[in-house]
Design a protein around this nucleic acid. Structure first.
Lengths: 226, 226
DNA sequence: GTGTTTGTGAACGGCGTGTGAACGGGGGCA
DNA sequence: TGCCCCCGTTCACACGCCGTTCACAAACAC
């Protein structure tokens, strides 16, 4: 996804943190000239402008973005509560605004709605580990760009393992976490599913799931930290 | 100026006070039926819906307003901070939202911006995906240029799926989002509608709706980017 | 070498889904 | 007011996928 353009530079820590949390890439610029200079080839996904510390500069920044050949949108404006009056007669400079103290989830929700409005759709929720990608919204998986045709339980198992890379799980743990707490089946069921997963991952990536003898299974490389 | 439509009835005191302060006339209604009954000849200027006390009812109210021949807009939604997550998959139900405790001046500013925005028509009237085209204004559908003769529920289902291409929905989700929250019917109803949709789409395009076993249905192909 | 643990192939059976058909309520029309 | 058609809903049944289990072979530990 293309990055969001932020103002000012450095961006307000709360804003940067909120965007990182929501998974939006971003770059900050302190002036329209710099924004052009660091603009990616694919352009900006949108802009988030904070008018909290320097209102004049912020509005000038917005105006510059709107005057481009391809007006930058969507544009989200961050304000202090006392600055609401400043919005008057500046309706064309922004698409939505957010009042401080702005909660990260409000910023995220506003960006989401803005992207939906402008027809760009939202980003899919992905689980990634090396060449493996799981799309949680579409229930599809791919390894090295090749789509995987997984059954429901295979997908659920791989999703669980993929969200806890490096960690070793016993069969009992997997049964309770993936199959459900009330599950009373044989532990060998896990083995069979792991085998089928390895087969579908292909010889090249079968090693992504490793066996820890007398314990259980591990996805990805062992972690030595944390 | 035409009045704003408020929900619920009686309207939250803070909201009523904010609108009075800003000089917006308004009327409150507790249900879509009442809203129609007390609607002025010139129609509503817009709506402000509070989801703070009764989220279920509020969203149902929004949906009813959007399903009218002339969808009511703009629609401003008032929420508690914890309800932000509820906005997911409901992007089409509102044009802007405002988090409690909402300051009167924020509500005023948002209404002002909404009116400025909607003066220029921002809501999409077409839903397109590949060969499929849905005209939201005329309630007509076409696939590959060939008109589709869809019933009301078929159209609503296809519209919902078509506005979220690639995403998998459970039958329960579809029932609540397309049929309505208060719906308590069998999940197999969805199956039958999907079957009829596939039949009307024709053998060539029946694959547009794919079954995800043990989960639900997906429209169109998965998106791996953006 | 022996015992335990895991990989492998195959078969069973349940459950989720597709399919055809029928019911029944609501709206249009006479 | 009565009729009839449309359409949303529900039911019964069949099919096939897929989760589960088993028996046996292979690998590893001691």
């Amino acid at each position: 996804m293309e990055p969001l353009l932020l103002y000012p530079d450095p961006a307000p820590p709360v804003l940067a943190q909120a965007l990182d949390l929501a998974g939006y890439p971003w770059k900050a610029a302190g002036s329209p000239d710099i924004a052009i200079k660091i603009e990616p080839d694919d352009g900006w996904a949108g802009a988030v402008v904070s008018a909290e510390s320097d209102p004049e500069g912020a509005f000038a920044f917005c105006r510059a973005l709107r005057k481009r050949d391809l007006p930058l949108e969507p544009l989200l404006l961050l304000l202090n509560a006392e600055q609401v009056g400043d919005l008057e007669l500046r309706e064309d400079l922004f698409d939505d605004f957010c009042l401080a103290p702005s909660h990260p989830r409000e910023i995220e929700a506003r960006l989401k709605h803005l992207f939906w409005r402008t027809g760009r759709g939202t980003r899919p929720e992905l689980v990634e580990y090396g060449p493996l990608v799981l799309n949680l919204e579409t229930y599809q998986a791919a390894i090295g760009g090749r789509p995987l045709d997984l059954t429901y339980m295979e997908y659920e198992l791989l999703k669980f393992l993929g969200t806890h890379p490096g960690k070793v799980f016993t069969r009992e743990t997997l049964l309770s976490r993936v199959w459900g707490y009330e599950y009373y089946g044989g532990a060998r069921t896990v083995d069979v599913h792991v085998r089928r997963l390895r087969a579908k991952l292909g010889e090249e990536h079968a090693g992504l799931i490793s066996t820890v003898r007398s314990v259980g299974y591990r996805f990805g490389q062992a972690r030595w930290g944390i």
